[in-house]
Structures are given as structure tokens and as C-alpha cells.
Design a protein around this nucleic acid. Sequence first.
RNA 1: GCUGCUGUAGCUCAGUCGGUAGAGUGCGUCCUUGGUAAGGACGAGGUCAUGGGUUCAAAUCCCAUCAGCAGCUCCA
Length: 731
Amino acid sequence: MIEVQLPDGTIVEKEDHATALDVAKGISEGLARATAAAVIDGNTVDAMRPLAELTDTRPVALQLLTTRDAEASAVMRHSCAHIMARAIMRLYEGVGLAFGPVKGNTFYYDFDLATPISEDDFPKIEAEMKKICKQAEPFERFTMGRDESIQFCADLNQELKVEHIQGGLADHDSLSFYRQGEFVDLCRGPHIPHAGMIKAFKILSVAGSHWKGDVSNRSLQRVYGTAFFDKKELRAYLEQIEEAKKRDHRVLGSRLQLFTINPDVGQGLCLWLPKGATIRATLEDFIKAELLRRAYEPVYSPHIGRVELYETSGHFPYYRDSQFAPLFGHSAGQLVDYWIRALDPNDEETTPPTADEEQKLLDAAMVMGFKGEEFPLQGSVEEKHTVLRNWEKLQERYLLKPMNCPHHAMMYKAIPRSYRDLPVRLAEFGTVYRHEQSGELNGLLRVRGLTQDDAHLFCTPEQVEQEFKDTLGLVKYVLQAVGLEDYRVQLSSKDPGSDKYVGSDELWENAQDTLRRVLTEEGIDFVEAPGEAAFYGPKTDFMVKDCLGREWQLGTVQLDYNLPIRFELEYTGRDNKPHRPVMIHRAPFGSMERFVGVLIEHFAGAFPLWLAPEQIRVLPLSEKSDDYAKDVASKLRTGGFRVTTDLQSAKLQAKIRQAQLDLIPYMLVVGPKEAEQNAVAVRCRIDGDLGVMSFDDALAKLTAERDNLVIRQVASPTALATDEGEASNEY
RNA sequence: GCUGCUGUAGCUCAGUCGGUAGAGUGCGUCCUUGGUAAGGACGAGGUCAUGGGUUCAAAUCCCAUCAGCAGCUCCA
């Protein structure tokens, strides 16, 4: 017999081989029907496995997971992934199985499959899945030894599973499988007792992916789906997605005329329309005022800089692929650049020049002033490259600036610095250009030209901690001021196994320790993300989600001991000797583009009074009141408000409806009565009609709301839940 | 960049079997002059993303290019 303790403390005795399902049955048939899985020792486990196998603790502390528990849904979705895989294997030949984990409310399965699956195929896959669910066959678990498992998977023609057992699961002696009818899959589990528990599911999309997430590996087809225990929940979830899409900043940006992106201007290059620009300018003014209070100094730098500058900083070689190609000060540079690439055997876009062509290139180069006799016409490619590289260096090459830090480092260097001057805080809304992969571009959230609310702090090693602390405080303050409270803090640290980082391990450890310590002292919850650091230093990133639940980095504070070395930055210490400062890179908003994009979604386009591009709209009751409306608007403008008048010959209801749809915070209705008393009838977008008040009272009320940066929202946006639970799916 | 999907009026979308393109909304003009979420009439708007091909005939079929969307990968 085995003793089992239920969450309420009750202890029940069961047969030795009893399962969680048996315990549930002992309580009620209904409970047994609803039991999807169990929790023992904090682990989610199969409800149909004998309890004695699952833990040595006695009595067994057992918690049943029923169809009402969120954890049970995750188990069920994983089972649904198996069912989808089973259906697809019935419909297609030669299906290779990769991974099929759960991700938030959705699941996916990666398939190695020659035939492309398209959306048109979803109905037939779903129909097959429905059949499987109807049959309500159980999920049966069994285990095998390593070698046996490898042979088993090989016999099933599941090469990827074989590879995974040999690679990722190398330290597992025994492996578990789940069988459901004719379908068997290497899987850690757990699963629901039988397929009949899945009452509602839907295939959502199909996309490409790569085996183990590595682009150099074979590409797979990833089919996404979602499943629920209840049809209503599925419908509600699909509606929630539709609802969330209405908040999409790309949709609102165009409806509210905030910004536009035009392919004729260029991919990923956004055009800020007046209303969007107003929001941005308001935010910039807000942060400029705050920086003044915090003793930052404004600077400006040009949009381009010499390539050598970025070679010094390390950005050019490191990010070459995602930068716009260098610009040449003279066309001779282009000639040499072309020549170098033509000779490069690894450059697939070019073919080596013939002897004839090379002579022409040489003639052209001599016309442009190069010393032709230096060029080894009969030499090797390497010898030619050497000469061409030298010629290239004679040319001015510029980079559209991908980063502001090198410019700011030069500004630091421009003036002799004493320890008494530090910290030096140089701030600039710096516009940078990055040639992001085309598939990555996304509205305002990922663009090719962006403006960072950037600043670089240069301080002594002793000051680092305080400066870092203050900077974190600034980021938190700024986010709180605009009402963005739903963020996650991440300490992006170095991946010890990678060689992409510059600088000594000691500097890195030192920097990471400082970040960890300050974050802990400040009581900021954070997760550490190894491998997410910049190549020159660790950083603290503030992450937020968009309307589809995708995560983006907004604010960032980065510690950097490396660029000061590369740029040989110095200050004179108390000892009259040169010392090396430490740099802190920081951008509370991140980029103005992404930040405004996120804000649009956060407020669903309905900005608080202080940020709204059009703050007040004056609505005359009829044309008879047009003059008074203009008068009111003009006085509000004098009070610093952004105000318009609606003079179209429409009924009041229509004007109000239009203003509500345009998400204008306040409407002032004026008719003959108001004109007579120098009054206005105030209507708030959120609260509706506030009644008639004197113009002065209305002005005072709105001024207070604006100047206090009051944030008001009808409902706080509910981002789609997409908790990252992927790591738990080991196989 | 990769995989899949999409591209028709300013916007949202119809358009059957290949046979000279349609709605709603917005926009303009006129009528209407109103009290807190849609008053009415008329009108203008399209090289069906671009370039090729197949065909007597292409928005429709095929190919390429460009752009967008979702995911992957990348992200200073």
C-alpha cells in the first residue's frame, strides 16, 4: 500500500501501483475525468503513471491538475502537438520529427518534410486531428536504454531524434517515449491521459525554422497551433488575438496619421508625419528637461564618420554585415573597392577580372592619381590585395554612423580632463543607420534609420557604481512617467563559451559583478541572460512586449571598460598621473522609433493629454458658433495647447463621434449659450460630458492635467500571454 | 538573409470558369444649422505592386523583381 497526501492534508491509502488518476477516481468520477496531470515534488507529471515510480517521499504529496489549471493546459497543448504530428504523418510521406514544445497558449512542431505545407492544408490536417481526438486513445509511456533508443529511432527513420539522443541527450542513460496509436515519439512528457480530453484546437500558421535554431543546419517547417479544454476558451483566445491586432502600432500609425513607411523612400526608413513627430518631440522635450536636472551636457555629431573611427571602436569589423556599405569621399575609392571585391575568390557576386580588364582598371587608377608602378600585375591575389588595401587607405571612407559612442569618445578626448571634471555626461539624440536584415524590419519597432536618446558617461572607476545606479533610476523614472510599468529587466552578460567579446575576462567579471550588485541593491527583479551582452560590455536591458506578445528591448544601460582603452581615453588623477575612465552607454527610451511604436500600442493610440498630438478639439454646435469656436481655440493655443476646430457642417453627434474615433482627449462644445457666457461645454474622451464651465476654469483644469503629466487609460492593455516556457522542453 | 503567405480606389475588402473593375468608409460640392458616438443628395478617385511570358483575350495562369505579413536567424 502507498500513502498519498492531498493538498487539503487528507491522507488516503492506495494500492502499490496506484496512479494519480486512481486517486482522483477514489474521490469522484467527475474529478477523474477532469484530471489531466499531477504535480509531485514540484514537477508536473503524468496522471497515469504509478505514484511509486515518481517519488520516494512518503506519504506522496499529490496535487491533481484538472482541466481548469493553467499547467494542465500546457500539458494538453504538448499532447496536441503530438496529435498534430500524428495527423501530418498520416497525410504526408517521409515526415522527420524534430521538436514540438509549448509556447504560452500555443504549441508548435518542427517537421523535416520535402513537401511544403501551406495554409490551404490546415483544414485537412485539422480534420485528421479531429478524428484522432474522437478516438480518445491513451498516451502510453515507455522507456528504453540509450543504444536501444538510438536503434529504435533509426528503425523509425527518425534521424533527427537519433542525432538528438547522441548529442543533446548524451548524458541520459534511459529515455522515455510516448505512444499514441501508431504514433511513437521520443518525449520527456508529461502528457494528458488520452486524446479525448482535447476539445478545441486550431492550426494557426506555418513558417520556416532551423534544426536546433542554427541557420547552418537543415531547414524545417514549423506548424503552430493552439488548443483548449473548452471550445469557448478557444474562441475567446482567437478573439483576443483579433482585439490585440487592433492595437498594432502599424495599423494605428496609419489610421491616426502618425507615421508612414514608403518603399520609394526605402525599406525600414520611417517618415514621421506631423502628429507622430509631435509625440516624439514632446517626449524629447520631456527627457531633455530631465537631463538638464541631472547635469548632462548636450552635444551634436554628424551622421557620418570615417571608417577608421569604427575600426578603432570595433563596430565596423564586428557588425560589417548589418551596416550600410562605406561611402567614398572620391570616386577613386569605389574603383579600388570594386577591384578588391572582384579579386576576392570568396565574393560570389563578382568574377575575377581578365588580364585585359585589369589593365583597364590600372589605367583608370593611374588617371585617378594612384602610382601604377606599385601594382603587381603578374603577382598573386594576395600581393594585389595588399597594394589595393594601401590605395584604399589613401581614400577617405565614411560610414553612415551605426553608433554614437565613437563620436562621443572623441568629444571626451577633445578636452584635457581632470578627475575634478568627472563624471562627464554627453547627451545627444543621435540618429544612426543600420542595414538590418529585411525579414527583421517591423513598423517602428525595427527600422534601418533610428534616433537614440543616447548619452555616454565618462567616470572614474570609483564613480561607476553611483552613476550606474543613477542611470537605472533615470530609466525607471522615464518609463514610469509615460505609464509603461509592464517591463522586464534583463542583465545581458557574456557567454563564457564564445569568442565574440573583446577585453579581458577580469574586466568582464568586474563589470558584471557591479551590475548584479547594483540591481540587487536597488531591489530590481532581473533575469540574467548569458550571451546577450554587447561585444564590448555587459548591459541591463528593459524589455517590453508588443501587441502580439513579441519582446523588444527599450531602455538599456551598458557598462564599458573596453572603448576607453581602444580610444585611449584618459583623465589626470589626484596623483597627477593619467588614468583610464570608464564609460557608461545609456538610452532610457532606446530609440525614439521603437519607443513611440511601443507607446502607441500601450495606449492603443489614445495618448494622455500631455502626449496627445491633438489635445483638444473645439466643436461649434453650428456655423453660427464658428467665430466663438475659433476664439476659444486661439486662447487655448496661447495657453500652449495643441488644438483644432471642427468647422464642417455636420451635426454635433457626428463631430463628437469623429473626435472620439480620432482619440482626442478633450472636446469643447460651444454653442450660442456658451458664447454668451464666455463658457465651454467640456467633454472628456473617457468620462464623457462634464458639463458647462467657464473658459478660465476649463483652461485651468486642462493645464493642470497636462502639466502634471497625468496618465489616464480606459483599460490597461492586456498583452497576449506568451510566457517563455520553451526551456522546459528538453526533448 | 531563410521558409511560407499576401499585394485590386486614401483605408477595409468583394471580384465565379481568363472576356474592358465593384461595395462600404473616407474625400469634394451642394442642401441641411443641429446640444454629447453616424442628417441627406450628387460627384471625383484604379497602368488591379512592377517587369516579362502564355493566350484571340490576363486583376485572374506562369516566371522574375519590389514591398508587406508571420515565423526562423540576427540585433551595437
